[in-house]
Amino acid sequence: MATTVRAVPRGRAAHVLAYHLVGYRRTWRATVFSSFLLPVIYLAGIGLGVGGYVDRGHHLGVAYLSFLAPGVLATTALTIGVEESTYRVFSQFEWDRTYEAMLATPLRVVDLLLGQLAFVVFRALVAVVVFLAVMAAFGTVHSPWAVAVVPVGGLIALACAAPTFAFTATQSSAQGFSVLQRFAVIPVQLFSGVFFPVSQLPAPVRPLAYLSPLWHGVELCRGLTLGTLHPWPALGHLAYLAVWAGVGFALAARTFRRRLVV
């Protein structure tokens, strides 16, 4: 590549982030609306309904709402991570062709990636902060450590977004996203200990749940909001999520280059 000889301005990824933020300025209302409303709906729905039935049984040692809420928070981070990395990224390849336009400037592929991933993390952070406030209003925050779920939420989003970016760059049509949704996202959401403890799964499939980045995210968030997190397992969970983010980024850089630099 001839890009090495050109003198290029600094902070290029920041420009990409700025680009996405400018777009977001027009659309933030709808997303904030949903990132506030969805948790309210969720927590109120469970609190009003099924939570009462679960609490009769005292299986969990804590109110079902308190058990569920941090799990749903982690799931929100995952959902944003994946959503922002599928159709949105795909349309920039195929429909709006933003990437093509960006690469006609001094920007490099890694700048596009870093800038847009930073935007995804930003989106997740906003949603997590709002979610945490809603959780507090529902009385499901039991420890001051709960504030730490904010950066953890960002990390979960990054760990899910980076590999999804890599996947999206390999897709020639939008059809692959429903497959991703059904074979990866939904199973992960259902069996990562969000709605019921992983210990309830049959022993042979339990290790699959441990592979899911969401399980690690849920463990972290739940430990933080209930105040039951121990440092060593916490480090393990963080490291595992960081590996997903790192490997995902490397893969994304490869697949993006293969698609854009031809």
């Binding site: 099924v50 039935y53 679960v54 009769r56 049984g57 299986h59 969990l60 079902y64 059809q175 429903s178 497959v179 059904r182 074979f183 939904i186 199973p187 259902l190 069996f191 709605f195 019921f196 309830q200 799964l201 049959p202």
Partner: peptide
């Protein structure tokens, strides 16, 4: 066709999660 097929897969997951998971908790 894989997308179509995946549509069958999803409900199995939901039933499974409800049956062995939430169902157990609720009674």
């Amino acid at each position: 066709w894989i997308v179509l097929l995946s549509g069958f897969f999803e409900p199995f997951l939901y039933l499974l999660a409800l049956g062995i998971g939430l169902g157990h908790l609720v009674g």
